[in-house]
Amino acid sequence: MKPFEYVRADDATQAVAMVAERPNARFLGGGTNLVDHMKLGLVEPELLVDVTALPFNRVEPLPDGGVRIGAAVRNSDLAANPLVRQNYPVLAAALLSGASGQLRNLATTGGNLVQRTRCPYFQTLYTPCNKREPGSGCSAITGHNREHAILGASQACVATHPSDMAVALTALGATVRVLGPAGERVVPIGELNRLPGDEPHQDTTLNHGELITAVDLPALPLAKRSAYYKVRDRASYAFAQVSAAIAVDIHSGVVRDVRVALGGVAHKPWRAHRAEALLRGAPATEDVFRAAADAELAEAKPLSDNGFKVPMVRNTLVSVLRRLAREH
């Protein structure tokens, strides 16, 4: 790790200006991903601007019935928040399935969204990786790729997004509020993270110096019936092989509305639009659930080690939908 300057920001506009004007400056939130990466030598910032003291640490109801989550809200506080537990159980469940109690007490909402892939080749300086070093190649395609993407990957990168929280936010259709040197803008969650394409080094659509200040959850009554299921190699404290965030409204045996997002399968949290389209208006039956899963997986392209993710996603989707249908 190279020496760096540290500043604790007490004003968001100044924080943004400080980072924006120096290409090698970074915002510091909970540090659980950034400090990790600095130790690994993946990033070598000259300046850290600590944004945890900015007034973005509240969870508050919005006039339209939604909820605003400050970017500095810790993962544990968000998961324990009564509004979230009551109205968006999928989000609380996703948060609680991630990391450990000690990490959730540090990690922030904003930081969780911009955490980077756990691909071992990305995290190792001596192996080629287009995400870490554009143009150097992808080691995972011909190497160990059991944890990697089956949807939306490219020849340049097959990494997955590691967040659980973001999968739930994607299902909920959250919007992300961003402060940049030019002012505020709002980014739909589905447009925050990117698919890798030819530029896998760009995880997100954020520009340098842009700071996430809040995440807004829309008023979404069906989210009260929502669930997150995560399949992983051990019972706790592990990243997802596959996960699903689902909210569904079933009336008289028919799916009135549904939101589905998948984790562990792509470079970004994967909104399952095809599955949703097939489910919406269809009878809530096992056959329909299976057809919806198959539709979403039609273009899955497994790698040498991760063909299992196709049946694992299918079965996970079907089993969570079945459970939610039963609870109606």
């Binding site: 071992p120 080749y121 190497g143 160990h144 059991r146 190699d233 051990r234 019972a235 706790s236 990243f239």
Partner: peptide
């Protein structure tokens, strides 16, 4: 849980940390 992910090209174990090389946790 336990398995070294050996990469023949790199010539090394690539799941070389506790996030990659799993050992049992309390919950297991």
């Amino acid at each position: 849980h336990e398995s070294a992910a050996v990469d023949q090209h790199v010539g090394a174990v690539v799941n070389n940390d506790f996030a990659g090389y799993h050992i049992a946790t309390h919950a297991d």
